[in-house]
């Protein structure tokens, strides 16, 4: 892979931005840092989601399922294994799971996939509950000395990896194949692309990343039970944030995550009794007023200024 000077420039700028953001825990208050953790968490989840769902247009609602698996890997593994190994193990387990799910569903067209992924989180929740029923154990306590700052740095590192992966995929044959699949799957097949293989390979990325996020965040939750680990709300929030930003660009989701987190914060602060109502209105506003997300808005503005100059 040969990099042009423009690529180097972009990479350097991204690296500098990451280093600046990494200094946040040194200056921020506890509250600001917890907002930072939320932003970092959704950035990782929404970006990895968009790498798969952006080009293929397959809406995945499986984020909560993989996230929960990751949380449980940390919850169960923390007593036996060193902490640093757990996110990696979680990532591998979830990637294998994603491959299996992909094998079963990605040969089908869109809507079956959406329903299956939504059901997956519920299915896993029931499996773990059943496991608890057999073993007679209750929720799991994750008592560690890991602080919010550690979690923030880990998430930031994971975000960097996701961006790098997304950037590399975008330049690869796989990325090209996926764009063709997204445009017209029949054409892609006739052009000789193994569409199922391409989709399954790429679906492993958001799966593995979501599980790693769950594994990293488990120490923050202290007490893990199925209802907390597999909350379906998470899947929907990731989708809406990614759509608000726009899935056409690698940096799209983060443009959605940051304003959405602050909007959500402002709503829960100022109207604690009407959060769900206002969240619903925000969803509607996003879908009606920003169908292409902030990316679409920014790009059309850029095109306009270029037209003027």
């Amino acid at each position: 892979m040969r990099l042009s000077p423009k690529d180097w420039q972009g990479l350097t700028l991204a690296a500098i931005a990451l280093i600046v953001v990494a200094c946040l825990p040194l200056v921020a208050s506890g509250y600001q840092l917890s907002l930072g953790v939320t932003v970092a968490m959704y950035t990782v989840l929404a970006t990895s989601w968009a790498i798969f769902s952006g080009p293929t247009h397959y809406i995945s609602l499986a984020t909560a399922a993989f996230f929960g698996v990751g949380a449980y890997v940390t919850g169960i593994g923390i007593t036996y294994l060193p902490y640093w190994a757990l996110p990696l193990i979680a990532g591998v387990i979830a990637a294998v799971m994603a491959a299996l799910v992909g094998l079963a569903t990605l040969r089908l067209s869109g809507v079956y996939f959406v329903i299956f992924t939504l059901g997956l989180a519920e299915f896993l929740r029931q499996v773990i509950t059943w496991g608890q029923n057999i073993s007679g154990t209750k929720g799991i306590y994750v008592l560690t000395s890991i602080t919010e700052a550690h979690i923030f740095w880990q998430l930031l590192g994971l975000a960097a990896l996701v961006w790098l992966a997304g950037w590399a995929i975008g330049r690869s044959r796989l990325g090209f194949a996926l764009r063709i699949i997204g445009d017209d799957e029949v054409v892609a097949k006739h052009a000789g692309i193994d569409t199922a293989r391409a989709k399954i390979l790429l679906f492993m990325l958001p799966g593995g990343v979501a599980a790693m996020t769950g594994a990293i965040l488990a120490p923050r939750y202290v007490y893990i039970e199925p209802l907390i680990a597999f909350t379906p709300m998470l899947s929907f929030q990731v989708v809406i944030m990614a759509l608000l930003g726009g899935t056409g660009r690698l940096w799209g989701p983060i443009v959605g995550v940051i304003p959405f987190t602050f909007l959500w914060e402002a709503i829960s602060r100022s109207f604690p009794n009407q959060t769900t109502l206002l969240l619903g209105i925000a969803f509607l506003a996003i879908v009606y007023l920003l169908p292409k997300g902030f990316v679409g808005l920014i790009e059309s503005a850029r095109r306009r200024t270029e037209g003027w100059s």
């Binding site: 208050s29 509250y31 917890s34 923050r220 939750y221 202290v222 709300m233 914060e265 602060r269 009794n273």
Partner: peptide, 17 residues
């Protein structure tokens, strides 16, 4: 008063807020 939406992440954030 804050609503944590029965979500532990929100509870933590609300306490810090």
């Amino acid at each position: 008063e804050y609503d944590d939406q029965t979500n532990p992440g929100e509870t933590i954030k609300a306490v810090q807020r």
